[in-house]
Design a protein around this nucleic acid. Sequence first.
RNA 1: GGUUCCAUAGCUCAACUGGAUAGAGCAACUGCCUUCUAAGCAGUAGGUUGAUGGUUCGAGUCCAUCUGGAAUCACCA
Length: 703
Amino acid sequence: MSMETTLQNALQQAFKELFNLEVTEVELQPTRKEFEGSHTFVMFSFLKAVRKRPDELGQMLGDYLTQNTNVVSGYNVANKGFLNISIADKVWIDTFGNLAQNNEYGKLPHKNQKVMVEYSSPNTNKPLHLGHLRNNFLGYSVAQILEAAGYDVVKANLVNDRGVHICKSMLAYQKFGEGETPESSGIKGDHLIGKYYVEFDKQMKKQVTPIIAKIAKNEFSLFTDEEVTNIRNYQNKIAKINEEIRNEQAKLPALKGQLLASFDADFQELFTNWEASLTYSSDFKKYIDNQSFTKKQQPLIKLIRRIIKLYNSIAKEDGNIKQIANNKTPLMNEVVEMLQKWEAKDPETVALWQKMNGWVYEGFDATYKAIGVDFDQMYYESETYLLGKDIIKDGLDKDLFYTKPDGSVWAKLPKEVSDNDKILLRSNGTSVYMTQDLGTADKKYEDHAISKSIYVIGNEQDYHCKVLFQILKDLDRPYADGLYHLSYGMVDLPTGKMKSREGTVIDADDLLEEVKETARKRTDDLGKLDGMSDAEKIEIYRIIALGALKYTLLRVDPKKRMLFDKESSVDFQGDAGPFVQMNYVRTRSILRKAAEMGISTNEPWAVSDLHVMEKELIKLLLQYEAVVEEAGYEYNPSFVAQYAYDLARTYSQFFAECPILKMDDGSAASIERRKFRIALSTKTGELIKKALGLLGIEVPERM
RNA sequence: GGUUCCAUAGCUCAACUGGAUAGAGCAACUGCCUUCUAAGCAGUAGGUUGAUGGUUCGAGUCCAUCUGGAAUCACCA
């Protein structure tokens, strides 16, 4: 029985014997550092029931624990309600003794449940970027954690290898590629395809300009009636916004005259530039966001913000119009044609598609290998996009779906989920993304009989997943209750959101190379790898670089959006991957040195008291399984990252304060202490390695 | 406009689900390498948890309103 359950049971017993009170749940929390003790029982909620003052109840419970258990060595009552309990050193030592011999520690009992983690799920029209890295690291880590928590895990990847976006790259390649290949160009396959995707966008922009000009002149001959109404709607919105802008701008001169002088020179310059052009200015906006202002200055700031926001809204509406115009370009027509050919299995189109996808897969495989993630099951949308049509019939039979007069099929959705029903079959009989996902969900279950299915998808698809899960639930799918959307936040850059069109995307391959280079420089500066072969060194740079990168992306709560600054985010110091790795390396170094000195590293010890840092270490070591369980339950690797860091930091303090090998002063006690500390180091190293392993981070033997 | 999420130290993030004096790292400043790896250790400084009310023994956490930010709401994928 663990210390914790011993205490909990004893406390329940105490309430029963002393007050005849049945207490169902006793929660203990770690004692804060500034107080004596390790476990704290919060008594507030029980004070009324037993009609005691905190110090009285504390004393009664404390005495009871001391007398009726053999683990408690003392207690104190603090801040009128906190009972801090101290555990005897001997108990800590014995518990660690058991732990040290348990090689299975950290592997939780088998749960006999199969769970699928779908992650990565890339498009085959451009290379992986920073956002994908967060996804991949998260998915892989969650899979490792669930496995440690006792599940059977299937790692799945659903590749989006068909559709309009793929045809864009294909068409551009066909037109401008001149037979270029990854071999002939020396460009990695996925990057080569990405190049043509960008090229398509460029060419289409050229074609769309005259169409936009026509719209501006109210020439609508190209468009259907419906499109014209939509465009008119957008134009009306823009007109309204413009009017608002005029209203707001009218207030500008007065405020400016009153307040501008109170701002610093930088601001005044930016303001003047902005006022002269009066458009959306991301520079100015960023400056304002990062600056603090006095209460007096706020009115002007608020007005500026308002105007900038309005310009931003115009840009959005403009984008909508552009979207419609895009579809009228000759290039887009060709794309649609190509997609139809592909769906009709036209040999030439399919051959091109296969060739280009092949290049992308080679590229992806290289990246996956480089970042250390893998999959047990690949799904391809080209094979799954027709799935889900059987479900339509099922839904119609169950009266969950209905058909509109034009032939389109819709799913009814409850008000809590969505105000609108969801279309599943277009009036022309083709299916949409949702239909396909429904079918794929069935397929996953048929293939693997999974009881849980985790979708690692960005939070911009919250709505999509909510609707998907609701429909599956309504359809009474047996796996419906096990569906979970692991919704993670976007990765922001200091310059704002990543946008491929503005060239602000951080490419995964490039980033990895840069981090490796940083790792190389730092490592070489420290000079600890002198005398190793180049191959050995490169391997260590790789491990450190990936450790740094994965740790920065995983230490943050997945649900939250996070900021990634290339210059400063990938830390090597402090709360960072390499710091944790370094402490593993220290434990290994201790063992190596011990062997050199001819000291056996695997012997029983006899110590009877503990140094503070020894006790802190043992406390942490005992928490590992609970952390795995919790991280698995919440699908949250950041708990593991936090734990790994705590363990490393505690070891680092222990390492600085407590001599290990130098312990020996010839006395028997010192030799026992040395054996004990070596065992502590060994176990700590083991658990650091395991914890980092759950994050997909490797450890070097030296660094 | 509707819905959902977010706001904590100069910066990046925590806070065991309502508990004690809100904690780490980075950046700044002070010490510590002739002894087990200094990518380190010890210390100083840094906070009206966006604002205002409320709920109670107790609120960063729950509720209401406001301010600011993000995502989403397609016969796109």
